[in-house]
Design a protein around this nucleic acid. Structure first.
Length: 322
DNA sequence: CGGCCCGTCACAATCGTTCC
DNA sequence: GGAACGATTGTGACGGGCCG
């Protein structure tokens, strides 16, 4: 997180030595601001890009140097000068001095660049943290009157414990972040630099259209990692699944209701049939019971009649025999 | 003065990024 | 997907400083 420090570092001075068309040049900032004025192509952009972003992260890619994003010029060209009039070998220094807004504390970051024709580019970035100031009590020349710039080894010795020297771009970037910005993660610092690079694009003034602004701002935003997106995509996926399931269940429910309606009608019909059968059977049973009791009465009478007849019959037989 | 050790430099190889 | 370029790492040669 960015600390809200009311006594911030502000840019105080910036300087170039043996770099591009500059022999030994110093720019003094006023309240952290600098106004560069000049005709098109006079080198305002080239001068500024040498400080921001180059001095902030040490990224020496040609496309980063050029505000138009082309790869036409390598940093080596700025160190050696033009193709024909240039030198065969040269050491350049670029530096920026920061001052605390309210106190007399100074911090200088910078880089040395050594180029040899056809031999690529050597780089060493440094920070002076003990308050020594370039041109006042710290010099990038071997001797003050002879303008021979220090080699890396010589600079390291001269800085000593009062600062740091880094030869790797990543280390230099981490060092600048540590002293100037204080982001917890180097990635955050990287994002800030990317934003600065995006915002300085001349497209901003050339094509002032909302879509272009949108494009630039969009590009400058930190991309979301898969890690960040996974919970969301999973949630959306779940929502989709649940929605699909719900729709399916609703269809099923409708169909089941239809089925139920028909089935109920069928059930009622069957029940009615059964009930009618029952009622009929019950009536039949009642009439049969009635008939049965009638027949039983009849049976009793017949039995009595039979008894009488039997008695008569016996009497008749007895009389005969006797 | 010579030998040893350490740091530097140059070079090659490989990896990563960006652009077309 | 390839080309170009930068970053990084490893290796060997070289040279300067230090010590005996």
């Amino acid at each position: 997180m960015i600390k809200l420090d009311m006594n911030r570092w502000i840019m105080n001075r910036a300087g170039l030595i043996n770099f591009w068309y500059y022999d030994d040049e110093e720019f003094n900032f006023s309240d952290g601001k600098l106004l560069l004025r000049g005709a098109n192509g006079s080198g305002k952009s080239v001068t500024m890009q040498s400080f921001i972003p180059l001095l902030l992260d040490g990224n020496k890619s040609p496309d980063r140097l050029d505000p138009f994003g082309s790869r036409a010029r390598k940093l080596e060209n700025y160190v050696l000068g033009d193709e024909d009039s240039g030198k065969d070998e040269n050491i350049s220094y670029i530096y920026m001095e920061f001052k605390k807004e309210k106190t007399e504390n100074y911090l200088t970051i910078g880089m040395g660049l050594k180029a040899k024709k056809g031999k690529g580019l050597d780089f060493w970035g440094f920070a002076i943290t003990d308050g020594r100031r370039i041109g006042k009590d710290f010099f990038l020349y071997k001797k003050i009157d002879q303008k021979v710039p220090l080699s890396r080894r010589e600079l390291e010795n001269r800085i000593g414990d009062g600062g740091e020297v880094k030869t790797k771009q990543k280390d230099y970037m981490a060092m600048v972040n540590k002293y100037l910005f204080g982001f917890d993660e180097l990635e955050e610092y990287d994002e800030l630099i990317k934003l600065l690079v995006q915002l300085r694009t001349p497209k901003l003034s050339k094509e002032f259209r909302p879509t272009v602004i949108y494009e630039i701002l969009n590009n400058s935003l930190q991309p979301l990692s898969d890690e960040d997106l996974r919970p969301m995509s999973e949630a959306i996926e779940n929502m989709d699944n649940i929605k699909n399931k719900l729709e399916q269940l609703e269809v099923s429910n409708r169909e089941a209701k239809k089925l139920k309606k028909v089935y109920e009608a069928y059930n009622n019909f069957v029940l009615f049939e059964k009930a009618r059968d029952y009622v009929d059977s019950y009536d039949k049973l009642k009439s049969l019971i009635k008939e049965k009791s009638k027949l039983e009465d009849k049976k009793v009478i017949m039995k009595k009649k039979f008894q009488v007849l039997l008695k008569i019959s016996r009497n008749l037989r007895y009389n005969k025999i006797i």
